[in-house]
């Protein structure tokens, strides 16, 4: 569950390895500004095993006042970020190796699957982004499970669907909805580019087993901007 602390006490953990200081630190500062807090660097020793490093990061994330952690999302760092993301109760932001890092977050892509659970998971983060002046672009992908049963007329149905979807799942001023068809995995990173989003915030179940979290995997692999993974509470 996300815990956002009062302004001035929030900390964003910047997890630093030997090779990825710049982007991780920069991203951490951007998020800390949004949270009205500060960055707490955690420099991992080079000789730490990934398991021990992960435990260290998770311990640090558990500290009161820490609102999220920022790690490198590169392929090389996968042995670290995977266990951290799977076990952290707080949002974890992964910075791609070739990330395009803005000075501030002007636009956030918020993929939502149309369930109350995922919307609730990212609600606090979304509100924080909105309060920080970021524009929210909600992405919903029609797949075989989520495609509407009925779609009477393109313009009117699209408008009605958008209004209802946002009212139910992201009723924040200025939020708008982008609809796609296919699978979330194929669209998230693409739409982030098309919409010039500065960050992607994804609710997820924290399960990376076979056949699971396809959208998360592909987004992390393809995104050009930081990806915030927000844990969903268990059913």
């Amino acid at each position: 569950m996300t815990t956002i602390q009062a302004a001035g006490t929030a900390e964003v953990l910047a997890v630093l390895g030997p090779n990825d200081e710049g982007p991780v630190t920069q991203t951490a500062h951007i998020i800390a500004r949004l949270a009205g807090g500060q960055v707490r660097p955690l420099r991992l020793a080079a000789d730490l095993s990934p398991q021990r490093a992960a435990r260290q990061v998770i311990r640090a994330l558990r500290q009161p006042g820490t609102v999220s952690g920022v790690l490198s999302g590169s392929q090389m760092s996968r042995p670290l970020w995977r266990p951290v993301a799977q076990r952290s109760a707080k949002p974890v932001v992964l910075v791609p190796a070739r990330a395009r890092l803005p000075r501030r977050i002007r636009r956030v892509l918020l993929p939502l699957d149309g369930t109350a659970r995922s919307a609730a998971a990212v609600a606090e983060a979304a509100e924080r982004f909105a309060r920080g002046g970021a524009e929210l672009v909600v992405l919903h992908v029609f797949d075989t499970q989520t495609v509407p049963k009925f779609w009477d007329q393109q313009a009117h149905a699209g408008q009605a669907w958008e209004q209802e979807f946002l009212a139910r799942f992201c009723a924040l001023p200025g939020a708008r909805l982008e609809l796609r068809s296919g699978t979330a995995a194929e669209h998230v990173a693409q739409v982030a580019v098309a919409e010039q989003a500065d960050m992607i915030a994804l609710a997820w179940s924290q399960r990376l087993g076979p056949g699971r979290a396809a959208a998360v995997r592909r987004t992390i692999a393809e995104a050009e901007v930081p990806v915030m993974l927000v844990p969903m509470p268990a059913d």
Binding site: P148, F150, D152, A157, A160, W161, Q163, E164, F165, A167
Partner: peptide, 16 residues
């Protein structure tokens, strides 16, 4: 059931 069970997801905008 179309409106009563909101099968369209859009009954909030009005009855069909």
């Amino acid at each position: 059931e179309l409106d009563l069970d909101d099968l369209t997801g859009m009954t909030g905008a009005g009855l069909h």
